[in-house]
Amino acid sequence: MKISTIKDLLKAEVICCEESLGLHVYSACGSDMMSDVLAYVKDQAVLMTGLVNSQVIRTAEMMDMKCIVFVRSKMPTAEMIELAKESNIVLLATPKRMYEACGILYSNGLVGNRVKNA
């Protein structure tokens, strides 16, 4: 799925790195606990979260993620946007809640893990 499709499906606002909207991503995860993301995620390129602090950007950077979606219209700080730009990570903000946002992407084919049954 293209990141631009995620933006459309979630009626999301693009906060930065618009030039990367054409990138393809194949799986996503949703969490507010960064250690869980660091523990269980493998090759998921999209992080959906309700947490807003610099550690969200650094966690995504550590995991080589391409896009972060902030749910419930949470807005990242200027400092977070700077960090995301440095790491070339697309930031999106959607008014939808976590459960709904994840459900929409999942039912449109963006799975939790690329490998079946894993």
Binding site: M33, S35, L38, A39, L51, V56
Partner: peptide, 11 residues
């Protein structure tokens, strides 16, 4: 703040 799940050292 998103940490303190007790997963750090195991990770």
């Amino acid at each position: 703040l998103g940490f303190g799940a007790g997963m750090g050292l195991p990770n």
